[in-house]
Write a protein that binds this DNA or RNA. Structure first.
Lengths: 209, 209
DNA sequence: CATTTACTAGAACATTATTCTATAATAGGA
DNA sequence: TCCTATTATAGAATAATGTTCTAGTAAATG
């Protein structure tokens, strides 16, 4: 009903038209993010996105189905990028403490370098269509699984505490995420770089044995 | 331009018409929250709110100025309630550890008892009109000030670490907030009650001397 | 009681999202 | 290479939704 969608934004697609299609979809998402940043989410119209991406109404609806569809795709795309970057980063770590520090550090760097996307991700973490919620749930589950698979040996070795699975991420990332959220919504002026070490230490303290 | 707005939702207003007005505004906000919960934020129309609150279009716009105005007022109202409840709760505490535990505990109880509002608060913490952002910033600043005024003696007595002002809230509330957010958006089924103690201990660990 | 101000009401209007029909480009098989 | 099915583009037409406007009602004020 919605259209193609043969790959998530990561996967390499077949060459030819599909590549061009992928490029067009990405240019739409890029335009949408810019609009959201400048005009606010409620403030941007489908025409704003259309104009900025040089895409016709028809194409837009062909590829995304609705305005909400664009917003959801953008969200899932952003989460995916963040998660993949994070996994790439921690996989080169060789012990628990280093890994936990890497999580906090990468989150700080990524959000500082991708402020519009970070702001967007923070702006709507709840409230999705059932299908998008489903996809998001899967993304989160896969991420948690991947992270835990990586951390499990550390837990077994006794470097980290044994805790309920769904508490690790909040314990490690919760504080820095909350700090960044407040910064991004303008409640305080200081970016997270100065407090990176503080939050990394706190994270490690929360989960170390 | 927008209309009256003689009091925030807390303040006792003069009797007579004003009281009725206040009641009407609150009934609109209540209706809006119900709609957001059932239909999603983007999914609810001004007419949905209007129907459910038995309020005419005219009244709606007289009191709130726009749909976004309703959403903002609802948000500020909710944050205000949460903050005031929190302050009330911690003010009866007599030492730092007890206070920190109270913060986490109250957050768990409040969000469990006010799930629709909690979900709404999580759904849009960023992305507001400049004026609303300003009001929100003030609310946050006042809250932080009040909390810190309360905690300051504990810091002086050496019960708590000396940290940058804007890091206390993320360190204490960040993990439980993140846990609750994930729960509310359906990523895991368990409510926060079972992990309350765990997160309270972690919070205390993060800020104790 | 007169007058001003706040509030209610919903039709008229404007904006914005979505659908629809037509056309062009590409891929894959004969 | 040509034919056909599929996918993509385009924008006018339409539907849905948000906002303004005019008129009238209730309360407050002096």
């Amino acid at each position: 009903m919605t259209g193609s969608n043969n790959q998530t934004s990561t996967g390499r697609a077949r060459p030819g038209r599909t590549a061009a299609t992928q490029a067009r979809k990405e240019s739409v998402l890029e335009a949408a993010l810019e609009c959201f940043a400048e005009l606010g989410i409620e403030g941007t119209t489908i025409h704003d996105i259309q104009r900025r991406s040089n895409c016709s109404i028809g194409s837009l609806y062909h590829h995304f189905g609705s305005k909400e569809g664009i917003a959801e795709e953008l969200f899932l795309d952003g989460i995916g990028r963040l998660n993949r970057g994070m996994l790439r980063k921690i996989k080169v770590c060789s012990n628990a403490e280093q890994s936990v520090h890497a999580v906090v550090g990468y989150y700080v760097e990524w959000t500082t370098r991708n402020q519009p996307m970070a702001r967007y991700l923070h702006s709507r973490d709840v409230d999705f269509s059932p299908q998008a919620r489903q996809r998001l749930k899967r993304i989160h589950r896969d991420y948690i699984t991947a992270v835990f698979t990586f951390f499990a040996p550390f837990v077994e070795r006794g470097e980290m505490r044994v805790l309920p699975l769904d508490t690790y991420v909040p314990l490690i990332s919760g504080p820095i995420q909350e700090y960044v959220r407040r910064w991004l919504s303008g409640h305080h002026p200081n970016g997270p770089r100065k407090v990176k070490a503080l939050f990394a230490d706190a994270a490690w303290n929360a989960v170390k044995s």
